[in-house]
Design a protein around this nucleic acid. Structure first.
Lengths: 197, 197
DNA sequence: ACCGTAGCGGAACGCGGTTCCGCTTGGCCA
DNA sequence: TGGCCAAGCGGAACCGCGTTCCGCTACGGT
């Protein structure tokens, strides 16, 4: 009962370094993007690269740790929207908006949603695991209300949105939000070959 | 008048090597994807890496050379579709279908449409330069016919389609074609806040 | 056959992620 | 308070990749 720590106690410098690393990484991601070299993050935190890797087995784990809060907030927002607005489709639209905000705010984060390389496996996994169920729920609600087609999975929609947002910053000819808007508008159309009502 | 070659004549082995490189690269792209290491291509062709770089200043140039024919065919298909079907929107749909076929057939090619990294500048540039005007023409025709919204550029649509297709192979949970279908269906919706008819 | 140079091969470089290992030092115990 | 020892640290080292460089080879005109 008096157990303060379930986890075996860690040395003070270890906790201090982990904190410093999270701060340094957050700052580096803002300044340079998620692709910033591990060495730079280590330098910002005033530690060696070895220390980075002891605390975070791979750079993707570090990214996950930095953005965990915002991903959780995004996950929680789904049910909230559903409860607040009458139209499930409207709730979906709002949720996707928030998700896009998150993606385009952080340079290069959207690229991680693509499973192409193996460079961001942990990140990819965490994102999907946490957010796909939320997206599924919104889609199912809107489909049940007859507002959208029902043959798209949350995974597909999220992958799609991620793809549309990837590399969207620093390109003034391309407005990711507008394209996502078009995609979401397209959900209302019936799939080709489906019975007409 | 009797000039066979405008370009200064090149040595026989040079021409032979360039040919071998194009063949080797094409084979390697099919087997491994466009991200295949330059060293592998050189080995397949039985030449040194130096030779690769003398013929193609950067790996992106090699990719462009390999796919030039298909890009040209895709560019030509735009006007053809417009001439063949009555509805410009239908022509656009067909053209996008063909473009998607091209992208998903070649592993990783779609990723090059994203301007994110600088790794594929030449490729990116060539693709856009050649195909964006075609896409613009199709969009303009469909917009003029009142079939779609008129606030999207060819560049945006192509970037969007590229994003939706990136990393789509080897993921059975994700159907790039279906997502592109949703996006194109979304074009028919009016932009938010536009006058109702 | 001879020679100048276009062209070649592959070692070497820079960069980024990750691993490894000898040294430092925090924290417990006497 | 001093001493011990492993948790933890730093950064050199390694690997893979794109690209560059340079000494040698051999093509092809004379």
């Amino acid at each position: 009962m008096a157990r303060i720590d379930e986890v075996p106690r860690r040395r003070a410098d270890a906790r201090r370094n982990e904190e410093a690393l999270l701060d340094a990484a957050a700052a580096a991601f803002v300044a340079t993007g998620v692709e910033v070299p591990v060495r730079d993050i280590a330098a910002r935190a005033g530690v060696g690269v070895g220390t980075v890797y002891r605390h975070f087995p791979t750079r993707a784990d570090l990214v996950v740790a930095v953005y965990r809060h915002q991903v959780e907030a995004c996950a929680d927002a789904g049910p909230t929207h559903l409860a607040e607005v009458a139209s499930p489709y409207e709730a979906l639209v709002r949720w996707v908006d928030g998700f896009v905000d998150f993606l385009v705010t952080k340079h290069g984060l959207a690229g991680a949603l693509r499973g192409d390389g193996s460079r961001f496996d942990a990140l990819h996994g965490y994102f999907l695991e946490r957010l796909v169920p939320v997206c599924d729920e919104l889609l199912a609600a809107a489909a049940a209300a007859g507002e959208i087609r029902d043959d798209l999975s949350g995974y597909e929609l999220m992958r799609g949105v991620g793809g549309l947002c990837a590399g969207a910053e620093d390109d003034e000819r391309y407005d990711a939000r507008r394209l996502v808007g078009v995609l979401v508008a397209g959900l209302r159309a019936r799939p080709p070959g489906s019975p007409r009502r």
